[in-house]
Design a protein around this nucleic acid. Sequence first.
RNA 1: CGGGACGUAGCGCAGCCUGGUAGCGCGCCUGCUUUGGGAGCAGGAGGCCGCGAGUUCGAAUCUCGCCGUCCCGACCA
Length: 591
Amino acid sequence: MDRSRDGSAQTPEAREAGRPAHGRSGSATGLGVPRASQLFIPTLREDPGDAEAASHRLLVRGGFIRQVGAGLWTYLPLGWKVHEKAVQIVREEMDAIGGQELLMPVLTPAELWQASGRYDIPEIYKLEDRAGRPFILPMTHEETVTFHAREIRSYRELPQILYHFQTKNRDEPRPRGGLLRVREFIMKDAYSFDRDEEGLEESFQKHAGAYRRIFERCRLEFHEVQAEPGMMGGSESIDYLAPSGSGENTLVTCERGDYAADLEIARGIPRPAEFPAALAAPEEVETPGVKTIEGLAELLGIDAAATSKAMPVVRPDGTLVLGLVRGDDRLSDSKMLGVLGSDYRAATDEEIRSAFGASGGSLGPVGLELDVIADEALRDGQFVAGANRDGRHLRGVEAGRDYAPRFADIREPRDGDRCPRCGGALTFQTAIEVGHIFKLGTRYSKPLGATFLDEAGEARPIMMGSYGIGPGRIVAAAVEQGHDEHGIAWPRALAPYDVHLVPIEAAGAEAMATAEQLADTLEGAGFTVLVDDRDRRPGEKFADADLIGLPYRITVGKKTVEDGRVDLLVRSGRQEERVAVGDVPERVGGL
RNA sequence: CGGGACGUAGCGCAGCCUGGUAGCGCGCCUGCUUUGGGAGCAGGAGGCCGCGAGUUCGAAUCUCGCCGUCCCGACCA
């Protein structure tokens, strides 16, 4: 215990014993309610110059966080309180589904990651100890937890759920947006261990339930969507997306509420194309100088949706594949990745020239030896396609008749698409990914040798799942969803304190005494209170209170104190009401 | 990693084009007056102008290199 700060003769035990039973947090001084005059809450009058996202701006201005380097942030005392509120909610819900909290180290021997095959992921930080032994700073803990799961020997010891809150490091190519994408952050990562698919499904659903409760308790608007498993491998994954003004994901939802998906895998029904009269066979037309779909549609006087767009790509083994989408659509990178089952890159001009005998702008699927992957939207109808001769296109190209593609959904949904379930209008919003859960299967248990013996005495790899939540992203999403031009409006579940008590200095000793007394009463009633006892002008105190965003603000001034009343303001609304001092706890509790 | 921008007092910025004593607003310190939405007056402190080379009698300013930060893209549990 740090005695240097506190010269009192109080022993830790006495201090502990003196703490109130209802668990309110201690004050900064060791005496009474936390006072702004003695806390480190450096608010800023102006927006930081390099911040754009609302959460970034307001968390910095409100004195919650400060930047140390790109993607590296300190949680100041106020910000850490919010973070820990989120952590506690996550912890309670994880424990409620039988999760067992532990703590695994950050510093990790490289050999674990070499064994899983993830050592070469570019995002991991690599380092050595003084003897030259290789270590990494992991981005998640599958390898380490699987290392421990090797101690599970029998089906009798399954299932298990283990989790921890631990610092993760990622050498992000581009950190951004304050807490939205960072290089070091705390993550709750949980891992489930089951004997078979059915067990995994059960663990997976338990987590899905816990996640819904967590985000509901945090008062976040969120959507549970099917997602891409990405580099984690594994069969199924669900993303939890919180719509926000800033973020890196695009959430696609149906106006009727029956469909929600991440843009990367979302399906949309494109508007129907208007086709010209059908032709019995493709017919070549001169299209000199036409390089774009717009130019082509204009020249021929047709709907851009009645054209097709060819996107030649190259796989790592050098094979060329032609992706074909409708002229007005965009190829979806993530979907293409899924269809190809491998990495790919756009073909270079030279590769295009030698394979097609034409350049960019005039490519089409007819008469090719290559694999052609055509979007579903091209299944029916006749489209204009490149002729594979510069300056020429083909009219009336029909899939099946004129070329033999493999059909797949490879278009990126866009504005104007209809819902694949009900035909309703789709809307697109940016969103923050606040959680992601995965079925890993035996992706890690096999290479790391985590097996158990079943009833038949046969060794089988453990079925695993992995479940992540970023408390820092919950914090950012809460601000994105709860703020106005004056500052943050925290939900009570995440607010660093419940009540901001603002005595007006000039109102005199009586007002101060009333404030002190009210603070104690409120704390006694189970609320946490921050008293702004700073020697500042009222306007400044109000501005800071708006910025910091505690759910309730109580003003004690000479206007009110004379008749034993105070002004109560709910941060999320803007209406203020005058309440008798004695009625305050009940009034606040009822809100 | 590609494209763009920025780095000057604690914060937000001007000055740079056209080289010659480093400025403004806010904040900070002292005093007095003020006090229900970021006060007024007076006085004061605070700068390796990102770093390093070069050009020049002289560089915040011109040139080159490097570093850092932000935005778009690529990337992305």
